[in-house]
Design a protein around this nucleic acid. Structure first.
Lengths: 209, 209
DNA sequence: CGAGTGACGATATTGTCAATTCGTCACAAA
DNA sequence: TTTGTGACGAATTGACAATATCGTCACTCG
């Protein structure tokens, strides 16, 4: 046991077999391509197996269910969104301005997905409706990004510091659902950007010192 | 044309024939009973006709579609909710307290409907997803109730008065969708009351002078 | 004229049954 | 031991005919 041996990574729920395995990456890759093109529901595990050149039984050595594959792909896609959110939140300039830009960008990314990646959007709907773990994880990570941004604002004196940070960031994450939840986004797509701006305004007023 | 003759009422969309007609009331009454028991989708127009003792063709003398009947019942049910909201908003005491009570009560009413009037809840889902006019009307009326409450708070000095009232009440109505939209309520039913409290907190911070 | 309806076409839904899909198990090969 | 699979049962989906539903029209009756 040398000092350079990392601890074994904790596998996400639904993962089987060794966490770092080429076949798993191939499955996720094939799954992402198929889900983007055909949608989650229309893609069969057999399609994925065929695309890789395996049997469906072998797929189940790596994921315990079709849903687990969906969760893995969903996590991957959402982590790209979060990377962009993190980048915006980490920009220089007033925290309030960054928060506005974050709200607008999140709305734009979601609309882009709705209009140009409809199958991925529909998969997001399924993930929310069926309460996939990847959605809960995403919410937590978004909240962490907001916490960091708010802490910046507090440090610079832009934002109030009385309310517990956890409560503030949780409430803001929650409020963001009113324009980011995929089903609401679908219903209110024509107003999504103005909704985002309105809510950013309300949130910034709530953060005012 | 005497001075005591009221103007003819403007009929809601989808209504046919004379606005004030006993058959229309019977249809709405039968429809509400059936939708509560069987749901909107499972209830046929023929069911309603049979319950009243008419042909389906006669039902269409009063409503131009099954959806219009649904909208009428939906409006009726939502107006009862709004009556309760209005009563809370009109209570005496600090405006902030009333706003908290309003958020909590709205969450409770919605959860009550989800758990004990599931068919009505499902109909609300349909109404939102298909963007029924009755939902848009409800949103507007809720916003008006909030405007009145906020104006009270401004008059008493509890709330800031810089932000245009329309913008404030619209943003709050929007934020309320995060715990009141029927599909979100369904997903997050275990946290609906704490969500409502969190959001009331955020909204009240946004209203602080 | 107001109150009311039978008949009907277009569309949607349901019922039936075959085919497919999901996920497991016992096993094989290197 | 790791990599991989054919066979299989339970559940779901697809195909298609049968039936139901939505909504309209031309008409009747008092």
């Amino acid at each position: 046991m040398t000092d350079s041996t990392p601890l074994p990574p904790v596998s996400p729920p639904g993962h089987r077999g060794p966490p770092d395995h080429e076949r798993r990456q191939q499955i996720i890759q094939a799954a992402e391509a198929h889900f983007r093109h055909y949608g989650f529901g229309k893609t069969t595990v057999a399609d994925l197996a065929r695309a890789i050149g395996l049997s469906t039984a072998y797929i189940y050595k790596f994921f315990d269910s079709k849903r687990a594959i969906g969760e893995a792909v969903c996590s991957l896609v959402l982590s790209r969104v979060l990377d962009r959110a993190r980048a915006i939140a980490a920009e220089s300039g007033p925290a309030a301005q960054r928060l506005r830009r974050l709200f607008t960008a999140m709305a734009e990314i979601s609309l882009e997905q709705y209009f140009h990646e409809r199958r991925l959007h529909d998969m997001a709907v399924t993930a929310c409706t069926d309460r996939w773990q990847s959605v809960a994880d995403y919410d937590q990570r978004l909240q962490a990004i907001l916490s960091t941004l708010i802490r910046d604002g507090r440090d610079s004196g832009e934002f109030e510091g009385r309310t517990p940070l956890e409560e503030t960031s949780l409430a803001i994450t929650l409020a963001m659902a009113s324009f980011l939840h995929p089903l609401i986004l679908e219903e209110r797509r024509d107003q999504a950007l103005s909704d985002a701006a309105l809510l950013a305004g309300l949130v910034l007023r709530s953060l005012a010192p």
